[in-house]
Design a protein around this nucleic acid. Structure first.
Lengths: 153, 153
DNA sequence: GTTACTGCAAAGGCTTTGCAGTCTG
DNA sequence: CAGACTGCAAAGCCTTTGCAGTAAC
């Protein structure tokens, strides 16, 4: 059944490519497949390194350009951040982020209440809203405990 | 009175420098003063170009490093974005952002209700929360009307 | 057979690092 | 005066662009 579900997902992806006038290539299939189920928010380089293990002939450029293409297609998003390399979000549904200011880790979280946030009409006037997200910045548990263990400075 | 208020602000800034063990230099004063009242979210280059007009001997590097120093001091923040050059936010109080995905413009907005957002304890567990922000992405009025005027494609 | 995609290479843009001279406290 | 800051230059990353060969349709 896992295989069945997986092939359905890939079928959908191939349809989406054709709908956008894009060709279905082995590289695109491999990258898309790899992104399924990756919940960390990888950079182009991270995707490249992982996919390169099982597909050594693929180039970084193809991975990089494919990710940008996927963003255009709407199958992934770019993550907002306080700078650094571009990172991608494989979950295009509405959700929220915790940003660790120490290690840069980004954790997804889901909350129906936050999804329902209302923007005051006065601020959204004339602005076409496409998405809403709550960003919590702070220090993740790992970094917090690291800091406590070096507390005496 | 404007002068009085202004010098108070500068006094506070100089105190803050000393509190952080930093020296008060003409460059830092000039940059800080320029940032007061700039509500667009400028890049290092934008700050440099503006300040260079009235302070031609200042270098880009100094501006760039000073802005990073100010972030460490906590007098400004970096803006979260979906890539591009680093931009700064001169307002360190809690507020929210509208991001135009077309032109990259970022508009501040204030809403007490949104400031009071509650994060589910299950997600914030172990995470030290430093700040919360709602990011609305969409298309600003200017870009919306541009798109409508070229509607016929 | 066309048209688009891949891989390689180079260029570009922003940020970071190193250092000598200069200035603040 | 000592330590820090500035300005200049170079190095580093990541991202973008250009092109010839190759693959999808």
């Amino acid at each position: 059944m896992a295989d069945h579900t997986e092939s359905l997902v890939m079928d959908e992806f191939m349809k989406s490519c054709r709908a956008h006038g894009l060709k279905v290539t082995p590289q695109r299939l491999a990258i898309y497949k790899m992104l399924q189920g990756s919940s960390e928010h990888p950079s182009a380089d991270a995707v490249y390194r992982r996919i390169h293990e099982q597909y050594p002939s693929i180039s970084f450029d193809t991975v990089n350009r494919t990710l940008l293409t996927f963003v255009d297609m709407g199958v992934i998003d770019t993550v907002e951040s306080h700078q650094g390399v571009r990172r991608y979000d494989t979950d295009t549904s509405t959700h929220h982020h915790l940003h660790c200011v120490k290690c840069g880790k980004i954790v997804d979280f889901y909350d129906a209440g936050l999804n329902a946030i209302e923007i005051p009409a006065s601020v959204s006037k004339g602005f076409t809203i496409l998405g809403k997200r709550v960003i919590i910045s702070g220090i993740c548990p790992e970094c917090t405990s690291k800091m406590q263990s070096q507390e005496g400075h």
